[in-house]
Simulated assay, not measured.
Amino acid sequence: MDDLVQWLRAQLDDDERTARMAAEELGDGWYYDDGFVLARREDDMVATGSQDFLEREHGQHIARHDPSRVLREIDAKRQLLDLHSVGGGHECSTRDARGDIDHCTWVMGSEACTTLRLLALPYTDRPGYRDEWRP
């Protein structure tokens, strides 16, 4: 379990480094403008498509994932990791659509809980991911 947490923290550190570099170079607050994704700071071009035109759906998607959003998501994921790093174990619960409580009981040092496995799922294509972590 500790391996998964350590590996996942390394992925978040890498994502943060990349997002901060993009923000430093291009700024954040990206937006789509008739074929291009631009950064609000001096309207620097972030992305364009083939033949210098980017389809609206693609451009809006890229703009939505600007560095500031990526950094907010990293912060949220780190907070979830911290919740699961409480000494002596942890029990988290959520409510399903009917209002019933669904528990995720995890004891430190044991097999990773579903929450941690789901946090790692977007990184399955990165070196070091283990298939045993798949939820």
Rank of each mutant, 00 (worst) to 15 (best):
R134K: 10
L4R: 08
I62P: 12
G29P: 12
S85M: 13
M1I: 05
W106A: 06
D44H: 15
L12A: 06
A22F: 06
D2F: 00
R130P: 02
G128H: 11
E73W: 04
R78N: 07
M45S: 03
P122D: 09
I101G: 05
D82M: 00
R134S: 11
D2M: 05
L83V: 02
Q79N: 04
T48D: 01
C92T: 13
R69C: 09
Y123A: 02
D125R: 12
L83M: 08
P135N: 10
W106G: 03
P67I: 05
D100P: 03
A97H: 11
D96P: 07
W7G: 02
T48M: 00
H90D: 13
M108E: 05
D34R: 13
D15M: 09
Q11L: 06
T94I: 12
E16G: 07
F53A: 01
R95F: 14
R17L: 15
E24P: 02
V37D: 01
L8E: 08
S68R: 07
R134C: 10
G27W: 12
A47S: 10
R95Y: 12
A23F: 07
R117V: 13
L54I: 03
Q60T: 12
L26I: 05
H58D: 08
S85K: 12
A47P: 03
Y123V: 04
E25T: 01
E24L: 02
Y123H: 05
L71N: 03
